[in-house]
Design a protein around this nucleic acid. Structure first.
Lengths: 169, 169, 169, 169
DNA sequence: TTTT
DNA sequence: TTTT
């Protein structure tokens, strides 16, 4: 089984940074990737691809990228599902970024670190629980949260009234 | 802008082959790609990734792959949206396969063409309208169909009563 | 069989543009790709990866990229061999770019076409002979040239006295 | 900077497994990747791509893959150079595999672990010195060996009389 | 809900 | 709605 995605595009908005109850950082952002071909009307469309990063690179993304920034992503496609507000299952396909590359030239935008690679360092817990570890082991009132992400980070859940352990991340 | 996806996984079901009103073949299928790591429960999960192919490779996919077949995909992530039955916009992220590789060994399953590459040949119309050309130019009662795919090939629209030019593909 | 390479890096020199006897353009250039990790001395090394492009994108590369330009490449790894000057076989591994992306911001360097994708258009001969077609069919005094490239475009063959049909491309 | 390679092909020979003086495993093998197109003579050529893996996945490769095995590689292109026997610099381009996927069906060949992913586990030292750490820090009579690999694992150095700390890996 |  |  292989699963590899590489993208270069521009952020449609500032990235969103959140923390799990256990203090693990997650950033989410959408990349607009212009197509290399035009449609029948001669227009160049774009794909809008939702991306997620964890831990240190998440914080780097939040610090160095903003709406319009040119960024590269190397990661995998990930699918999850959650219960929608109407009670039916919503299926989500997004890119889990393993490294994010800042492609904005030095000095342009506020980023001082051109071409820096926001890699997952080697000092993090084993990859085998990278998705689930953020939720911790204690206090599992909604234990399914440990297997699959149960909310959509792109759905704008911020305005919903949630207690700490309801947090999607 | 760059957009590249490579997947190797197994079909969750037989592929579905359809034709646009203009006679262009489209196949859709879902690839189950097992993750290389395990979750907190020690289970190996999978991602279920929807893929679409057009034209000749679509027909090859329909002829040579079936539920459980091991296949490789080289393509791009594509996003589209359509009007859901409840009137609200549904956003779809899927993989538009440019070539599909049959990785099943010879003789296993019915496929007689091991390792064959279901490439888009060179004899097709220019890539610049690959998404839209299937829908043709005439009879545009729902002209938005020419810019964006307006139905979800994975939503099982087959049972809906549609006339020829309502076909999602 | 699958073979896909994606690179983002900077040109180590201006690209070299040549033409085959049949007038087909080939550009070659080397991309310096900084590694995301440091070595034992704490230095960040780079990989220097030779790339080749054909036809229209070759001319775009020659027109829009120069030493130091940031570029993205989507292509395949290609291996060839040729007779070295000492009579022994030299093996070459390089990237055959299918599309080249100019990632330099507008106005920076002379390139006026930021983010333009130097794709192979759809109007070229079928992919099935993309490597060989440049050499044409006539005048095959060195017919092996039609099967495999026989000189190294990165070896600096320019200073060698060659007649038109000795050209490596 | 981005650097990503994905390959699916067959081993041209049994993999070679070596150990550094410090006991770190390195496997090298060549993947034959058939092209998806044919040349002017209508023949389907192949690219022969040298690959290297380190540590645990190196041992898995040595145990489960052999000549003819179908394998997938996810990694990066790496370039190095070493002093040739004639005193001139030899430049090498190869694929440093980060994970190797065994694509042979169960029971075919000796491999009992179909579809297993020979990933680099999470329990290894940080990626920042993945290339150099095998050589250790002590006994650096040829200190350049710590910065760049100085011999070609594909050159068949086995027959050369070398003491332990001369080992290329 | 989309970027230059 | 998921594959071996």
């Amino acid at each position: 089984m292989m699963n590899r995605v590489i993208l270069v595009g521009r952020l449609t908005k500032d990235p969103e940074l959140r923390y799990t109850p256990n203090g693990v950082a997650v950033a989410s952002f959408t990349l607009a990737v212009n197509r290399s071909f035009t449609n029948q009307q001669g227009e160049r469309e774009a794909d809008f691809i939702n991306c997620v990063v964890w831990r240190r690179p998440a914080e780097n993304v939040a610090n160095f990228l903003k709406k319009g920034s040119l960024a590269g992503v190397d990661g995998r496609i990930q699918t999850r599902s959650y219960e929608g507000q109407d009670g039916k299952r919503v299926y989500v396909t997004e890119v889990m970024a393993e490294s994010v590359q800042f492609l904005e030239p030095k000095g342009q935008s506020q980023g001082q670190s051109q071409g820096q690679n926001f890699d997952r360092g080697g000092n993090y817990p084993s990859r085998s629980n990278e998705q689930d570890s953020p939720f911790g082991n204690q206090n599992q009132r909604q234990p399914q949260r440990n297997t699959r992400l149960d909310e959509d980070p792109f759905a704008g859940g911020g305005q919903i009234d949630i207690s700490d352990d309801d947090l999607p991340f």
